[in-house]
Design a binder for these strands. Structure first.
Ligand SMILES: [Mn+2]
Ligand SMILES: [Mn+2]
Ligand SMILES: [Zn+2]
Ligand SMILES: [Zn+2]
Lengths: 152, 152
DNA sequence: AAACAACTGCAATCGGCTTGCAATTGAGCG
DNA sequence: CGCTCAATTGCAAGCCGATTGCAGTTGTTT
């Protein structure tokens, strides 16, 4: 099966990003880390560590390795952690030059996910920070409901 | 130590609410359930099951009982579940005739909590629901930052 | 007071996540 | 290219919040 040129380009670029981020921290570019980014790039929605593990070709690495890798990638700002409230962390690839902040609309029946790209709270957030004299205020927000397919 | 009259009144009222809610579902008014509501009433912020357990007079009941009670009380709409993202569910008493929906501002250093009573998203929520044809849309939102005391 | 369903305590168990340790491997260097 | 060593990994044990099966207890109804 042939890989299209643009996909190869994607991959090359992403690898270079990984390399750049790892340099200067004496971190290594390893198979598991590349595989994880590869998998995340193909997925439009946040994935659990287990899902990443399952998507990995033939037990390519241990689940513990994925947990450790996600911490590293999160620290480097290459992935963003989301919490859908079901007890399992989810991760999504962050675009270059983006901070990854956004929200989701999640179907409570089928677990389907809709990406909500705008954030409506930037303004409100600073008002709340000022009013309570908090610094470095952020927020976590997710929407839940019943999707069209699950309504009937 | 004497209990003031208004406190006794509070307690009586709350008990009657509990009774009313339990009736017709063949549920029992038990010691643990009364004790839990009593504790929650004294606390202005969401509590974990462990905290409720610790606040209980001398191992008055088992931790598992508290977990079960919180499910029941949540189902009955008497408490609201919150998620501060640290892996432990938190519960807050819901006022009568209130749905309990609100938000918090949480200090990531000292875990202090500020209650945010307004909800800014009612409007946006219905826009999102309509745009994606979802029904029964709700949201979970919490703010995080560094409180005045922790800034120095 | 009896009868029975609801409830509780206890201990086992689960699932997500972390961690200690010995073996492996990537990156820089000669 | 092969050497060296810290970084990384696999594995297994363990942590923690939460759930559950079961036998014994208790609240409610009659
Ligand atoms: Mn997303
Ligand atoms: Mn609150
Ligand atoms: Zn936002
Ligand atoms: Zn709200």
């Amino acid at each position: 099966m042939k890989v299209p040129a643009h996909a190869r380009a994607h991959k090359r670029q992403e690898l270079s990003v990984l390399t750049r981020h790892l340099r200067g921290q004496s971190r290594k570019i390893t198979g598991p880390r590349q595989a994880i980014l590869e998998i995340l790039r193909r997925h439009p929605h946040p994935m659990t560590n287990r899902e990443i593990f399952a998507a990995m070709p033939k037990g390519r690495c241990d689940l513990a390795t994925i947990y450790r890798a996600m911490h590293l990638l999160e620290e480097m700002g290459m992935v963003k952690r989301f919490d859908f409230g079901d007890g399992a962390a989810r991760f999504e690839l962050v675009g270059e030059g983006d901070d990854g902040h956004h929200h989701h609309l999640i179907c409570t029946r089928c677990a389907g996910v809709v990406e909500i790209d705008e954030c409506f709270l930037r303004e409100i957030e600073s008002r709340i920070a000022a009013r309570n004299r908090f610094k470095a205020v952020t927020h976590k927000l997710e929407f839940f409901g019943i999707c069209p397919a699950c309504q009937r």
